[in-house]
């Protein structure tokens, strides 16, 4: 077992087999730096619980492929990323910090899928971004390269 401590001072015990999916912690263990509690100053307990849930589920990736539980895992992943934007960003940052490649891939792809084919207005609203481009600037960007903006229909809904 490996002990992790979130930045709000909560401790979590995780199986070594699960936690070494994090390249960062794997390296620490290999270098013998993980004898006591590993402090994670960038991750709060809420996010860490999500990350540990993912690690535990993905602990036996290879085994799942053999026993045909891949679908189960895929379904878990779909459910897993079903969270709000802020939560998703927290997990992305945690995954990046802990260097968990698969989790990073999953969450960034989910974020990209949410932005795909959305109108500019919808994106701003979803992420509460203030537009600091003037109308002229916007038009200039489009006029400069009108071909880049041609494509499938745009979705104006916010969800």
């Amino acid at each position: 077992m490996v002990k992790l401590k979130s930045n709000d001072d909560k401790e979590f015990e995780v199986e070594e087999a699960a936690v070494i999916q994090s390249e960062m912690i794997k390296n620490m263990i290999e270098d013998g730096c993980a004898t006591s509690v590993i402090p994670l100053p960038n991750i709060d307990s809420k996010t860490l619980i999500k990350v540990i849930e993912y690690l535990n589920k993905h602990i036996n990736m290879g085994k799942a492929a053999e026993t045909g539980e891949e679908d189960d895992l895929k379904e878990f992943d779909e459910q897993f990323v079903n969270m709000g934007w802020e939560e998703l960003f927290d997990v992305i940052m945690a995954a990046n910090y802990l260097n968990i490649h698969e989790l990073m891939e999953l969450c960034c792809q989910s974020a990209a899928d949410r932005l795909k084919n959305k109108s500019v207005r919808a994106v701003r609203e979803m992420l509460k971004i203030t537009n600091d481009l003037t109308e002229e600037e916007e038009q200039e960007i489009i006029n400069d390269a009108p071909w880049a903006f041609e494509g499938p229909e745009i979705d104006d809904t916010v969800n």
């Binding site: 960034c108 795909k116 500019v120 994106v123 537009n131 600091d132 903006f149 041609e150």
Partner: peptide, 19 residues
């Protein structure tokens, strides 16, 4: 990292969101 996963023309569209 997220932008890299966007297909065109969505990748072009995000350029209009803000500076």
């Amino acid at each position: 990292e997220i932008f890299r996963r966007l297909p065109p023309p969505s990748s072009a569209a995000v350029s209009l969101v803000c500076k």
